[in-house]
Design a protein around this nucleic acid. Structure first.
Length: 422
RNA sequence: GGAGAGGUCGCAUAGCGGUCGAGUGCGGUAGUCUUGAAAACUACUAAGAGCGCAAGCUCUUCGCGAGUUCGAAUCUCGCCCUCUCCGCCA
Protein backbone atom coordinates (compact mmCIF):
# COMPACT_ATOMS: atom_id res chain seq x y z
CA UNK A 1 0.00 0.00 0.00
CA UNK A 2 1.16 3.50 -0.76
CA UNK A 3 0.67 6.71 1.16
CA UNK A 4 -2.48 8.42 -0.15
CA UNK A 5 -0.66 11.75 0.03
CA UNK A 6 1.99 10.37 -2.27
CA UNK A 7 -0.69 9.19 -4.70
CA UNK A 8 -2.41 12.59 -4.66
CA UNK A 9 0.80 14.48 -5.28
CA UNK A 10 2.45 12.18 -7.81
CA UNK A 11 -0.49 10.81 -9.78
CA UNK A 12 1.16 11.13 -13.19
CA UNK A 13 4.56 9.66 -12.30
CA UNK A 14 2.77 6.89 -10.47
CA UNK A 15 0.62 6.07 -13.49
CA UNK A 16 3.74 5.85 -15.64
CA UNK A 17 5.46 3.62 -13.07
CA UNK A 18 2.44 1.32 -12.96
CA UNK A 19 2.35 1.15 -16.74
CA UNK A 20 6.05 0.26 -16.74
CA UNK A 21 5.24 -2.60 -14.41
CA UNK A 22 2.61 -3.83 -16.86
CA UNK A 23 -0.27 -3.13 -14.50
CA UNK A 24 -3.30 -1.05 -15.31
CA UNK A 25 -2.72 2.60 -14.30
CA UNK A 26 -6.46 3.36 -14.28
CA UNK A 27 -6.43 2.34 -10.64
CA UNK A 28 -4.82 5.67 -9.76
CA UNK A 29 -7.68 7.79 -11.03
CA UNK A 30 -10.15 5.45 -9.43
CA UNK A 31 -8.45 5.80 -6.07
CA UNK A 32 -8.32 9.57 -6.36
CA UNK A 33 -11.96 9.77 -7.34
CA UNK A 34 -13.07 7.71 -4.36
CA UNK A 35 -10.66 9.57 -2.10
CA UNK A 36 -12.36 12.86 -2.94
CA UNK A 37 -15.77 11.33 -2.45
CA UNK A 38 -14.65 9.88 0.84
CA UNK A 39 -13.35 13.15 2.19
CA UNK A 40 -16.51 15.01 1.27
CA UNK A 41 -18.67 12.46 3.01
CA UNK A 42 -16.35 12.29 5.98
CA UNK A 43 -16.58 16.03 6.42
CA UNK A 44 -20.35 15.85 6.37
CA UNK A 45 -20.53 12.97 8.84
CA UNK A 46 -18.01 14.50 11.22
CA UNK A 47 -19.91 17.76 11.26
CA UNK A 48 -23.14 15.96 12.10
CA UNK A 49 -21.49 13.85 14.76
CA UNK A 50 -19.94 16.92 16.29
CA UNK A 51 -23.35 18.58 16.56
CA UNK A 52 -24.95 15.43 17.91
CA UNK A 53 -22.19 15.07 20.50
CA UNK A 54 -22.59 18.67 21.60
CA UNK A 55 -26.32 18.19 21.93
CA UNK A 56 -25.95 15.03 24.03
CA UNK A 57 -23.31 16.74 26.19
CA UNK A 58 -25.63 19.64 26.90
CA UNK A 59 -28.14 17.25 28.49
CA UNK A 60 -25.61 15.62 30.77
CA UNK A 61 -26.74 15.00 34.36
CA UNK A 62 -30.39 15.88 34.07
CA UNK A 63 -33.61 14.68 32.49
CA UNK A 64 -33.83 15.70 28.83
CA UNK A 65 -36.96 17.55 27.74
CA UNK A 66 -39.23 16.07 25.10
CA UNK A 67 -37.87 18.61 22.62
CA UNK A 68 -34.30 17.63 23.33
CA UNK A 69 -35.08 13.99 22.81
CA UNK A 70 -36.69 14.89 19.49
CA UNK A 71 -33.62 16.80 18.37
CA UNK A 72 -31.38 13.93 19.39
CA UNK A 73 -33.50 11.52 17.41
CA UNK A 74 -33.30 13.78 14.37
CA UNK A 75 -29.51 13.64 14.48
CA UNK A 76 -29.61 9.93 14.76
CA UNK A 77 -31.90 9.67 11.78
CA UNK A 78 -29.73 11.80 9.53
CA UNK A 79 -26.61 9.96 10.62
CA UNK A 80 -28.23 6.61 10.00
CA UNK A 81 -28.67 7.75 6.45
CA UNK A 82 -25.18 9.15 5.84
CA UNK A 83 -22.97 6.86 7.88
CA UNK A 84 -23.61 3.73 5.82
CA UNK A 85 -22.75 5.72 2.70
CA UNK A 86 -19.46 6.73 4.24
CA UNK A 87 -18.77 3.22 5.35
CA UNK A 88 -19.32 1.91 1.88
CA UNK A 89 -17.12 4.53 0.30
CA UNK A 90 -14.40 3.81 2.83
CA UNK A 91 -14.55 0.13 2.04
CA UNK A 92 -14.25 0.82 -1.66
CA UNK A 93 -11.39 3.18 -0.92
CA UNK A 94 -9.53 0.60 1.11
CA UNK A 95 -10.18 -2.01 -1.50
CA UNK A 96 -8.73 0.21 -4.22
CA UNK A 97 -5.76 1.25 -2.11
CA UNK A 98 -4.81 -2.40 -1.77
CA UNK A 99 -4.72 -2.67 -5.54
CA UNK A 100 -2.23 0.09 -6.25
CA UNK A 101 1.16 -1.38 -7.17
CA UNK A 102 4.43 -0.07 -5.79
CA UNK A 103 6.59 1.79 -8.33
CA UNK A 104 9.90 0.18 -9.18
CA UNK A 105 13.10 1.75 -7.88
CA UNK A 106 14.83 4.35 -10.06
CA UNK A 107 17.50 2.00 -11.39
CA UNK A 108 15.21 -0.86 -12.41
CA UNK A 109 15.38 -1.39 -16.18
CA UNK A 110 12.11 -0.66 -17.92
CA UNK A 111 10.94 -3.65 -19.89
CA UNK A 112 7.90 -5.64 -20.85
CA UNK A 113 8.75 -9.17 -19.77
CA UNK A 114 11.50 -11.55 -18.75
CA UNK A 115 13.33 -11.02 -22.03
CA UNK A 116 14.34 -7.57 -20.87
CA UNK A 117 15.87 -8.57 -17.55
CA UNK A 118 19.51 -7.61 -17.29
CA UNK A 119 22.38 -9.92 -16.45
CA UNK A 120 23.84 -8.33 -13.38
CA UNK A 121 26.55 -10.85 -12.63
CA UNK A 122 27.95 -14.19 -13.74
CA UNK A 123 29.78 -16.61 -11.47
CA UNK A 124 31.55 -19.87 -12.17
CA UNK A 125 32.67 -21.64 -15.31
CA UNK A 126 30.16 -23.65 -17.24
CA UNK A 127 31.69 -27.12 -17.06
CA UNK A 128 32.54 -29.22 -20.08
CA UNK A 129 31.60 -32.83 -19.97
CA UNK A 130 33.27 -35.70 -21.75
CA UNK A 131 29.81 -37.22 -22.03
CA UNK A 132 26.32 -35.93 -22.70
CA UNK A 133 25.04 -34.58 -19.36
CA UNK A 134 21.62 -35.81 -18.34
CA UNK A 135 18.74 -33.94 -16.81
CA UNK A 136 17.94 -34.43 -13.14
CA UNK A 137 14.90 -36.53 -13.88
CA UNK A 138 16.89 -38.89 -16.10
CA UNK A 139 19.55 -39.26 -13.42
CA UNK A 140 16.99 -39.73 -10.69
CA UNK A 141 15.30 -42.43 -12.70
CA UNK A 142 18.44 -44.58 -12.93
CA UNK A 143 19.38 -43.99 -9.31
CA UNK A 144 15.83 -44.42 -8.01
CA UNK A 145 15.79 -41.02 -6.32
CA UNK A 146 12.46 -39.66 -7.46
CA UNK A 147 9.12 -41.30 -8.16
CA UNK A 148 6.70 -39.04 -9.92
CA UNK A 149 4.69 -41.71 -11.73
CA UNK A 150 3.18 -43.17 -8.57
CA UNK A 151 3.00 -39.76 -6.90
CA UNK A 152 0.88 -38.38 -9.70
CA UNK A 153 -1.37 -41.40 -9.49
CA UNK A 154 -2.14 -40.75 -5.86
CA UNK A 155 -1.74 -36.97 -5.59
CA UNK A 156 -2.26 -35.47 -9.02
CA UNK A 157 -0.05 -33.43 -11.29
CA UNK A 158 3.38 -32.25 -10.17
CA UNK A 159 3.41 -34.56 -7.15
CA UNK A 160 6.57 -36.43 -6.25
CA UNK A 161 8.21 -38.80 -3.86
CA UNK A 162 11.87 -38.29 -3.08
CA UNK A 163 13.64 -41.53 -2.29
CA UNK A 164 16.85 -42.95 -0.93
CA UNK A 165 19.88 -40.67 -0.91
CA UNK A 166 17.96 -37.77 -2.36
CA UNK A 167 16.02 -37.56 0.90
CA UNK A 168 19.31 -37.22 2.73
CA UNK A 169 20.63 -34.76 0.18
CA UNK A 170 17.55 -32.58 0.60
CA UNK A 171 17.86 -32.60 4.37
CA UNK A 172 21.55 -31.84 4.06
CA UNK A 173 21.13 -28.82 1.84
CA UNK A 174 18.30 -27.39 3.96
CA UNK A 175 20.28 -27.97 7.11
CA UNK A 176 23.34 -26.32 5.61
CA UNK A 177 21.30 -23.31 4.46
CA UNK A 178 19.66 -22.88 7.82
CA UNK A 179 22.92 -23.07 9.72
CA UNK A 180 24.60 -20.65 7.37
CA UNK A 181 21.89 -18.04 7.98
CA UNK A 182 21.94 -18.59 11.73
CA UNK A 183 25.65 -17.89 11.47
CA UNK A 184 24.77 -14.54 9.88
CA UNK A 185 22.66 -13.59 12.89
CA UNK A 186 19.26 -14.59 11.54
CA UNK A 187 16.71 -15.99 13.98
CA UNK A 188 15.60 -19.44 12.88
CA UNK A 189 11.83 -19.87 12.77
CA UNK A 190 9.32 -22.44 11.79
CA UNK A 191 6.10 -20.76 10.80
CA UNK A 192 2.37 -21.29 10.31
CA UNK A 193 1.83 -22.97 6.96
CA UNK A 194 -1.78 -21.90 6.85
CA UNK A 195 -2.57 -18.24 7.36
CA UNK A 196 -5.61 -16.03 7.27
CA UNK A 197 -6.40 -13.62 4.47
CA UNK A 198 -4.88 -10.64 6.28
CA UNK A 199 -1.43 -12.13 5.96
CA UNK A 200 -1.91 -12.75 2.24
CA UNK A 201 -3.21 -9.23 1.57
CA UNK A 202 -0.66 -7.76 3.94
CA UNK A 203 2.32 -9.22 2.16
CA UNK A 204 0.89 -8.19 -1.19
CA UNK A 205 0.25 -11.71 -2.51
CA UNK A 206 -3.40 -10.75 -2.65
CA UNK A 207 -5.24 -9.61 -4.66
CA UNK A 208 -2.84 -10.37 -7.48
CA UNK A 209 -2.02 -13.95 -6.52
CA UNK A 210 -5.33 -15.23 -5.22
CA UNK A 211 -5.54 -17.82 -7.97
CA UNK A 212 -2.17 -19.32 -7.14
CA UNK A 213 -3.02 -20.25 -3.55
CA UNK A 214 -4.79 -23.22 -2.02
CA UNK A 215 -7.19 -22.80 0.83
CA UNK A 216 -8.70 -24.94 3.55
CA UNK A 217 -12.40 -25.45 4.13
CA UNK A 218 -12.07 -22.93 6.97
CA UNK A 219 -10.79 -20.32 4.57
CA UNK A 220 -7.16 -20.26 5.62
CA UNK A 221 -4.66 -20.01 2.80
CA UNK A 222 -1.68 -22.31 2.39
CA UNK A 223 1.46 -20.24 2.20
CA UNK A 224 3.41 -20.18 -1.04
CA UNK A 225 6.47 -19.13 0.94
CA UNK A 226 7.50 -18.57 4.56
CA UNK A 227 7.86 -14.92 3.55
CA UNK A 228 4.15 -14.55 4.22
CA UNK A 229 4.24 -15.76 7.81
CA UNK A 230 7.55 -14.12 8.61
CA UNK A 231 6.77 -10.74 7.10
CA UNK A 232 3.42 -10.73 8.90
CA UNK A 233 5.07 -11.93 12.10
CA UNK A 234 5.05 -8.52 13.79
CA UNK A 235 1.78 -7.32 12.25
CA UNK A 236 0.19 -4.40 14.14
CA UNK A 237 3.24 -3.99 16.34
CA UNK A 238 5.43 -0.99 17.01
CA UNK A 239 9.15 -1.64 17.38
CA UNK A 240 11.96 0.57 18.55
CA UNK A 241 14.59 1.75 16.13
CA UNK A 242 17.23 -0.04 18.16
CA UNK A 243 15.46 -3.36 17.49
CA UNK A 244 16.13 -3.00 13.78
CA UNK A 245 17.11 -4.71 11.62
CA UNK A 246 15.00 -7.76 12.44
CA UNK A 247 16.51 -10.74 10.63
CA UNK A 248 14.64 -14.01 10.39
CA UNK A 249 15.27 -17.25 8.57
CA UNK A 250 12.29 -19.53 8.16
CA UNK A 251 11.93 -23.08 6.97
CA UNK A 252 8.60 -24.30 5.72
CA UNK A 253 6.74 -26.20 3.09
CA UNK A 254 5.44 -23.98 0.30
CA UNK A 255 2.29 -24.61 -1.70
CA UNK A 256 1.62 -23.24 -5.15
CA UNK A 257 -1.17 -24.00 -7.55
CA UNK A 258 0.97 -23.00 -10.54
CA UNK A 259 -2.17 -22.04 -12.41
CA UNK A 260 -0.38 -20.05 -15.08
CA UNK A 261 2.12 -22.74 -15.96
CA UNK A 262 0.19 -25.65 -17.39
CA UNK A 263 2.51 -27.82 -19.41
CA UNK A 264 5.66 -25.98 -18.30
CA UNK A 265 8.49 -27.88 -16.64
CA UNK A 266 6.53 -31.08 -16.29
CA UNK A 267 9.59 -33.33 -16.17
CA UNK A 268 11.09 -34.17 -12.82
CA UNK A 269 10.68 -31.97 -9.76
CA UNK A 270 11.66 -28.58 -11.10
CA UNK A 271 8.21 -27.05 -10.78
CA UNK A 272 5.97 -28.65 -8.17
CA UNK A 273 2.92 -27.79 -6.07
CA UNK A 274 4.65 -28.47 -2.80
CA UNK A 275 8.25 -27.85 -1.83
CA UNK A 276 10.41 -26.91 1.11
CA UNK A 277 12.21 -23.63 1.37
CA UNK A 278 14.63 -21.86 3.66
CA UNK A 279 13.79 -18.18 3.37
CA UNK A 280 15.31 -14.97 4.69
CA UNK A 281 13.09 -12.07 5.76
CA UNK A 282 14.38 -8.76 7.10
CA UNK A 283 12.84 -5.56 8.44
CA UNK A 284 15.01 -2.45 8.28
CA UNK A 285 14.59 1.21 9.14
CA UNK A 286 12.75 3.41 6.67
CA UNK A 287 15.71 4.39 4.53
CA UNK A 288 15.92 3.23 0.95
CA UNK A 289 19.72 3.42 0.83
CA UNK A 290 19.99 1.19 3.86
CA UNK A 291 17.39 -1.22 2.58
CA UNK A 292 19.28 -1.46 -0.70
CA UNK A 293 22.48 -2.27 1.14
CA UNK A 294 20.59 -5.02 2.92
CA UNK A 295 19.11 -6.16 -0.38
CA UNK A 296 22.60 -6.63 -1.80
CA UNK A 297 23.75 -8.30 1.38
CA UNK A 298 20.92 -10.80 1.19
CA UNK A 299 21.85 -11.50 -2.40
CA UNK A 300 25.35 -12.46 -1.28
CA UNK A 301 23.89 -15.02 1.14
CA UNK A 302 22.11 -16.72 -1.74
CA UNK A 303 25.31 -16.54 -3.78
CA UNK A 304 27.28 -17.97 -0.88
CA UNK A 305 25.15 -21.06 -0.97
CA UNK A 306 25.66 -21.66 -4.68
CA UNK A 307 29.35 -20.85 -4.40
CA UNK A 308 29.72 -23.28 -1.53
CA UNK A 309 28.02 -25.85 -3.74
CA UNK A 310 30.28 -24.76 -6.61
CA UNK A 311 27.34 -24.42 -8.95
CA UNK A 312 27.73 -21.79 -11.68
CA UNK A 313 25.04 -19.13 -11.65
CA UNK A 314 24.09 -15.75 -12.91
CA UNK A 315 22.23 -12.92 -11.22
CA UNK A 316 19.52 -11.06 -13.12
CA UNK A 317 18.23 -7.64 -12.32
CA UNK A 318 14.56 -7.98 -13.15
CA UNK A 319 12.95 -5.42 -15.41
CA UNK A 320 9.77 -3.55 -14.46
CA UNK A 321 7.57 -5.96 -16.40
CA UNK A 322 8.82 -9.04 -14.58
CA UNK A 323 8.31 -7.90 -11.00
CA UNK A 324 5.59 -8.39 -8.44
CA UNK A 325 3.20 -5.55 -7.72
CA UNK A 326 4.80 -4.70 -4.41
CA UNK A 327 8.46 -5.07 -5.23
CA UNK A 328 10.74 -2.07 -5.61
CA UNK A 329 13.62 -4.03 -7.04
CA UNK A 330 14.32 -7.70 -7.55
CA UNK A 331 17.25 -9.97 -8.34
CA UNK A 332 16.71 -13.49 -9.50
CA UNK A 333 19.57 -15.91 -9.10
CA UNK A 334 19.67 -18.59 -11.75
CA UNK A 335 21.74 -21.71 -11.32
CA UNK A 336 23.26 -23.57 -14.21
CA UNK A 337 21.50 -26.82 -15.11
CA UNK A 338 23.90 -28.81 -17.31
CA UNK A 339 21.23 -31.32 -18.36
CA UNK A 340 18.90 -28.55 -19.50
CA UNK A 341 21.89 -26.55 -20.73
CA UNK A 342 20.43 -23.40 -19.32
CA UNK A 343 20.23 -21.19 -16.26
CA UNK A 344 17.11 -21.64 -14.16
CA UNK A 345 15.78 -19.60 -11.26
CA UNK A 346 16.68 -20.84 -7.81
CA UNK A 347 16.48 -17.64 -5.74
CA UNK A 348 14.53 -14.42 -5.75
CA UNK A 349 15.65 -11.39 -3.75
CA UNK A 350 13.32 -8.38 -3.35
CA UNK A 351 12.78 -5.29 -1.32
CA UNK A 352 9.53 -3.41 -0.81
CA UNK A 353 10.16 -0.23 1.17
CA UNK A 354 7.03 0.24 3.31
CA UNK A 355 4.62 -1.35 0.83
CA UNK A 356 4.10 -4.46 2.95
CA UNK A 357 4.56 -2.73 6.31
CA UNK A 358 1.73 -0.30 5.55
CA UNK A 359 -0.60 -3.15 4.70
CA UNK A 360 0.48 -5.05 7.81
CA UNK A 361 0.79 -1.99 10.04
CA UNK A 362 4.29 -2.71 11.27
CA UNK A 363 5.94 0.44 12.56
CA UNK A 364 8.83 1.54 14.70
CA UNK A 365 9.56 4.47 16.94
CA UNK A 366 12.47 6.28 15.30
CA UNK A 367 15.24 7.87 17.35
CA UNK A 368 13.68 11.29 16.76
CA UNK A 369 10.42 10.05 18.32
CA UNK A 370 8.40 9.81 15.14
CA UNK A 371 6.58 6.69 14.05
CA UNK A 372 7.60 5.13 10.78
CA UNK A 373 6.79 2.01 8.85
CA UNK A 374 9.57 -0.56 8.65
CA UNK A 375 10.96 -1.53 5.27
CA UNK A 376 10.79 -5.22 4.39
CA UNK A 377 12.88 -7.55 2.27
CA UNK A 378 13.07 -11.24 1.52
CA UNK A 379 15.17 -13.72 -0.38
CA UNK A 380 15.47 -17.44 -0.86
CA UNK A 381 18.32 -19.34 0.74
CA UNK A 382 17.47 -22.79 -0.57
CA UNK A 383 14.33 -24.17 -2.17
CA UNK A 384 14.11 -27.91 -2.53
CA UNK A 385 13.70 -30.07 -4.57
CA UNK A 386 14.72 -27.49 -7.18
CA UNK A 387 18.11 -26.87 -5.61
CA UNK A 388 18.57 -30.65 -5.40
CA UNK A 389 17.85 -30.90 -9.11
CA UNK A 390 20.61 -28.37 -9.71
CA UNK A 391 23.01 -30.33 -7.51
CA UNK A 392 22.19 -33.62 -9.21
CA UNK A 393 22.77 -32.21 -12.67
CA UNK A 394 25.97 -30.42 -11.74
CA UNK A 395 27.48 -33.30 -9.83
CA UNK A 396 26.70 -36.11 -12.24
CA UNK A 397 29.53 -38.40 -13.19
CA UNK A 398 30.17 -40.26 -16.40
CA UNK A 399 29.34 -43.59 -14.71
CA UNK A 400 25.87 -42.29 -13.81
CA UNK A 401 26.62 -41.70 -10.15
CA UNK A 402 26.40 -38.37 -8.41
CA UNK A 403 29.13 -36.90 -6.29
CA UNK A 404 28.01 -35.31 -3.05
CA UNK A 405 29.12 -31.67 -2.78
CA UNK A 406 31.94 -31.43 -0.31
CA UNK A 407 30.14 -29.10 2.07
CA UNK A 408 27.20 -31.48 2.32
CA UNK A 409 29.24 -34.60 3.05
CA UNK A 410 29.29 -34.07 6.82
CA UNK A 411 25.50 -33.79 6.74
CA UNK A 412 25.06 -36.86 4.55
CA UNK A 413 27.79 -39.08 5.76
CA UNK A 414 28.79 -40.14 2.26
CA UNK A 415 30.49 -38.67 -0.77
CA UNK A 416 28.70 -40.38 -3.63
CA UNK A 417 25.24 -41.41 -4.68
CA UNK A 418 25.43 -44.67 -6.58
CA UNK A 419 22.88 -47.10 -7.95
CA UNK A 420 21.43 -49.37 -5.31
CA UNK A 421 22.76 -52.88 -5.46
CA UNK A 422 19.89 -55.30 -5.40
C1' G B 1 -16.62 -31.23 20.54
C1' G B 2 -18.99 -30.07 25.91
C1' A B 3 -18.98 -26.73 30.50
C1' G B 4 -17.22 -22.26 32.73
C1' A B 5 -14.26 -17.51 32.97
C1' G B 6 -12.42 -13.46 30.41
C1' G B 7 -10.71 -9.77 26.39
C1' U B 8 -9.85 -1.69 28.79
C1' C B 9 -4.04 3.06 27.22
C1' G B 10 3.64 -0.67 26.47
C1' C B 11 2.48 -4.19 31.01
C1' A B 12 -0.83 -4.96 35.40
C1' U B 13 -5.42 -3.31 36.97
C1' A B 14 -10.04 0.21 38.12
C1' G B 15 -14.41 1.23 35.71
C1' C B 16 -21.30 -1.29 36.47
C1' G B 17 -25.33 4.67 31.28
C1' G B 18 -23.43 11.23 30.93
C1' U B 19 -18.39 14.17 35.37
C1' C B 20 -14.42 8.44 30.76
C1' G B 21 -10.07 9.11 25.70
C1' A B 22 -10.64 6.75 30.23
C1' G B 23 -8.31 6.55 37.19
C1' U B 24 -4.18 3.94 39.74
C1' G B 25 0.51 1.15 39.84
C1' C B 26 4.69 -0.35 36.93
C1' G B 27 7.41 1.04 32.73
C1' G B 28 9.18 5.24 29.45
C1' U B 29 10.77 10.58 28.64
C1' A B 30 12.23 15.30 30.69
C1' G B 31 13.31 18.12 35.02
C1' U B 32 14.46 19.16 40.52
C1' C B 33 17.91 17.33 44.09
C1' U B 34 23.14 14.91 43.92
C1' U B 35 30.35 15.14 42.73
C1' G B 36 27.92 11.03 39.96
C1' A B 37 24.28 7.34 40.58
C1' A B 38 20.20 5.44 43.35
C1' A B 39 16.04 7.06 46.03
C1' A B 40 12.46 10.81 46.40
C1' C B 41 9.64 14.57 44.12
C1' U B 42 7.40 17.24 39.67
C1' A B 43 5.65 17.27 34.70
C1' C B 44 4.67 14.74 30.34
C1' U B 45 3.45 9.74 28.23
C1' A B 46 -2.03 6.42 22.54
C1' A B 47 -3.00 6.02 17.55
C1' G B 48 -5.54 6.95 13.04
C1' A B 49 -8.23 10.42 10.03
C1' G B 50 -10.36 15.23 8.11
C1' C B 51 -10.05 20.67 7.74
C1' G B 52 -6.26 24.63 8.19
C1' C B 53 -0.32 28.51 5.92
C1' A B 54 -0.24 27.99 11.06
C1' A B 55 -1.98 28.19 15.96
C1' G B 56 -5.53 24.94 16.33
C1' C B 57 -10.42 22.74 15.65
C1' U B 58 -13.14 18.27 14.78
C1' C B 59 -14.12 12.99 14.23
C1' U B 60 -12.99 7.80 15.31
C1' U B 61 -10.96 3.94 18.36
C1' C B 62 -11.97 0.34 25.58
C1' G B 63 -11.34 -7.59 20.86
C1' C B 64 -14.72 -7.14 16.09
C1' G B 65 -19.70 -6.23 14.21
C1' A B 66 -24.80 -5.06 14.92
C1' G B 67 -28.55 -3.14 18.28
C1' U B 68 -31.04 -0.40 22.62
C1' U B 69 -30.62 5.02 24.23
C1' C B 70 -31.07 12.10 23.62
C1' G B 71 -26.24 9.85 25.33
C1' A B 72 -22.57 3.24 25.60
C1' A B 73 -15.97 1.03 27.88
C1' U B 74 -20.50 0.38 30.76
C1' C B 75 -27.01 -2.71 28.66
C1' U B 76 -28.58 -6.62 24.55
C1' C B 77 -27.33 -9.97 20.47
C1' G B 78 -23.81 -12.30 16.98
C1' C B 79 -18.70 -13.34 15.80
C1' C B 80 -13.42 -13.79 16.87
C1' C B 81 -9.63 -14.78 20.32
C1' U B 82 -7.50 -16.29 25.21
C1' C B 83 -7.62 -19.12 29.77
C1' U B 84 -9.53 -23.34 33.09
C1' C B 85 -11.93 -28.15 33.39
C1' C B 86 -13.83 -32.52 30.58
C1' G B 87 -13.64 -35.38 26.01
C1' C B 88 -10.68 -36.69 21.67
C1' C B 89 -5.84 -36.95 19.66
C1' A B 90 0.00 -36.91 16.88
Amino acid sequence: MLDIKYIREHADTLKQAITDKQFNPAIVDEVLRVDTQRRELLQKVEDLRSQANKHADSIKGRKPTADEIEIGKKFKQVLQDVEPQLKQVEETYKDLMFQVPNPAAHDVPIGKDEKENIVHKMWGEIPHYSFEPKTHDQLAETLDLIDTKRAVRIAGSRAYFLKNDLVLLEQAVLQYALKMMIGHGFTPMTVPWMVNDDAMWGTGYFPWGIQDHYQTQDGQKLIGTAEVSLTAYLKDETLNEKDLPVKMVGISPCFRREVGSYGKDTKGVFRVHQFTKVEQVVYTVADEDLTRTMHDKMLTYAEDLLQALRIPYRVLLMCTGDMGAGQRRKYDVEAWFPGQKTYRETHSDSYFNDFQARRLNIRYRAKDGTLKYVYTLNNTVAASPRICAAIIENYQQEDGSIAVPEILRPFMGKDRIVPLVK
